[in-house]
Each structure stands twice: as structure tokens, then as C-alpha cells.
């Protein structure tokens, strides 16, 4: 894994600097900083309510930050809504999958980016054709292109959500608990997919509760607690127990770079 990690000289794909957001006086994210390099998987860990999902939703445009800066390819960018984020190649697989349950897979795949005929009407046939291609790669057994996604199984729904994120040439992929609804076999498939995307040079933020998953897949981990970054470390520099200490106690081990939230 170490050989494939980008050298420090490569410029980061995305940098989030001193990001803060508050909801009704509660600081959900407090001066948190993150970065991500091409072909790198960064695991974001923390308890429920640690602020990891909120931080990532700021990057995907779902929330608007109160303070801080986001740089893509070194240039500061304004991300005020999901459309802006997609413009910069930032795609997200949400924990809830964020699918419109009443429409079919192709419509979900292209939601917000529909293919149009030359008369400006929806080109459903073209969208279905593309959907068949991309789904054929992800989940070759998928046949139910005419059914609303509400009638699909958890794994099939997940593959629709993943297909949507990777189909539009994502450069930065955010995966929020991508395996929460999956069985062991499908979880392994997602793991394979992450390795494949990584090899293509896509940067991935992986949010997970499962510390074992993260250790298997990530190059680096960042731990959050109470809205602040406890610390970050390359996976080979820390043990699982040390990371647990970071998550539970906010104690930063010697192998990690401490953040604002590290216990003094």
C-alpha cells in the first residue's frame, strides 16, 4: 500500500481549512481541517455526532459552512449547493443513499443531469442504455431497469447510488458508510471497487464506524470528536487500539499528527 501512496510532493486534490459550522449555537464542526491526494483513501472516523458527516456534507454542498476555506487543486472554490460540488468533480454516496424511491434506476442515476434529446425532452432510452452499461459493470445481475428503486433490495439500491457517484467522472468521491446496509459478499465488492477507483487516481473520503474496514482500505485516517479533529495518521503508523483511543478519549498517539481536538 505504501508504494502507491502519492508522494508528499504531489499537490492535494482538495483541502478543507479551518471549517466551522454551527446549528442553533451548537458547534457541529469546529475549525476542522482535512486534505486528500489523488489516488488516496482517507478514512474519517469518530462517534455518532462527532461531526464527520456534517464536515463531509459541507464538501458535498448539502450544508453551507459558517467559516473556513475549501481549495480544489489549490484554488479556493465556492461550494454553496450540491450542483457546485458536482461541478468540481465531487460526488457523494450518502448513508441514506438519497434515492428518489418512486422512480427507476436510470432516472436516479441521471437525476439532476438528465440526458436530453435534441428537442430538449428527456431521452429515457439513452439514459436506460447508459444505466445498463454502468450497472453491468457494478452489478451484472441487475435487471430491473423498469421498476422504481423502492422495490429493489438493499444491495441493488446501494449499487444504484454508487453508480450515480462514479458515472460522471468523479475526481473526489465521498462515501458515507457505504457498507452499512450490505452483507459480507457485497461489502467485499465495495472494497474491490474502492481499490479499483483508487488505482484510477480518484481521491476517496471513506466515512465508517467499522475500524477494521477503514484499516483495510484507507491510506490515512482522520479522527474527529466533538466537532474537532483529534488527529490524523498513516494507517501503518498507528495500531487499531491507538485509533480506538483517539475515537473514545481523544488521545493522540505518538504516530499521529495531533489536531485541535486532541486531549492535552
Amino acid at each position: 500500500m505504501d508504494a502507491t501512496v502519492s508522494p508528499p510532493s504531489a499537490s492535494p486534490l482538495v483541502v478543507m481549512k479551518d471549517i466551522s459550522i454551527a446549528f442553533g449555537g451548537i458547534k457541529a464542526v469546529d475549525r476542522a481541517s482535512l486534505d486528500l491526494f489523488p489516488g488516496e483513501v482517507v478514512g474519517l472516523l469518530g462517534h455518532n455526532g462527532a461531526g464527520k458527516s456534517t464536515l463531509i456534507k459541507i464538501l458535498s454542498g448539502a450544508y453551507k459552512r459558517d467559516a473556513g476555506e475549501i481549495l480544489v487543486d489549490g484554488a479556493p472554490v465556492a461550494i454553496d449547493n450540491p450542483r457546485d460540488a458536482k461541478k468540481f468533480g465531487i460526488e457523494t454516496i450518502y448513508q441514506t443513499l438519497a434515492l428518489a424511491d418512486n422512480v427507476d434506476a436510470a432516472s436516479n442515476l441521471y437525476l439532476g443531469r438528465e440526458l436530453l434529446t435534441r428537442w430538449g425532452t428527456l431521452d429515457d432510452a439513452a439514459m436506460e442504455s447508459q444505466a445498463r452499461k454502468v450497472m453491468g459493470r457494478l452489478n451484472p445481475n441487475f435487471r430491473r431497469f423498469k421498476d422504481p428503486v423502492s422495490s429493489l433490495s438493499g444491495g441493488q439500491r446501494q449499487s444504484v447510488a454508487i453508480a450515480r457517484a462514479i458515472h460522471f467522472n468523479a475526481r473526489i468521491l465521498i462515501m458515507d458508510e457505504p457498507t452499512a446496509a450490505l452483507g459480507p459478499q457485497e461489502t467485499a465488492q465495495v472494497g474491490e471497487l474502492i481499490k479499483q477507483l483508487k488505482a484510477e487516481g480518484i481521491g476517496i473520503f471513506l466515512i465508517s464506524h467499522d475500524i477494521h474496514d477503514v484499516f483495510d482500505l484507507a491510506d490515512r485516517i482522520v479522527v474527529m470528536k466533538n466537532g474537532q479533529v483529534v488527529g490524523s495518521a498513516r494507517v501503518q503508523d498507528v495500531t487499531k487500539d491507538e485509533v480506538l483511543g483517539m475515537i473514545i478519549l481523544g488521545k493522540c498517539p505518538p504516530g499521529a499528527t495531533p489536531g485541535l481536538g486532541a486531549m492535552q
Binding site: S60, R83, A98, A100, L111, G112
Partner: peptide, 11 residues
């Protein structure tokens, strides 16, 4: 079908 999903998709 899902107002939140539509908003997240950029609608």
C-alpha cells in the same frame, strides 16, 4: 419520492 434526495442531486 424523496425531497432531500432531489435537493442533494442538485435539483
Amino acid at each position: 419520492g424523496n425531497p432531500e434526495a432531489a435537493a442533494l442531486a442538485g435539483v
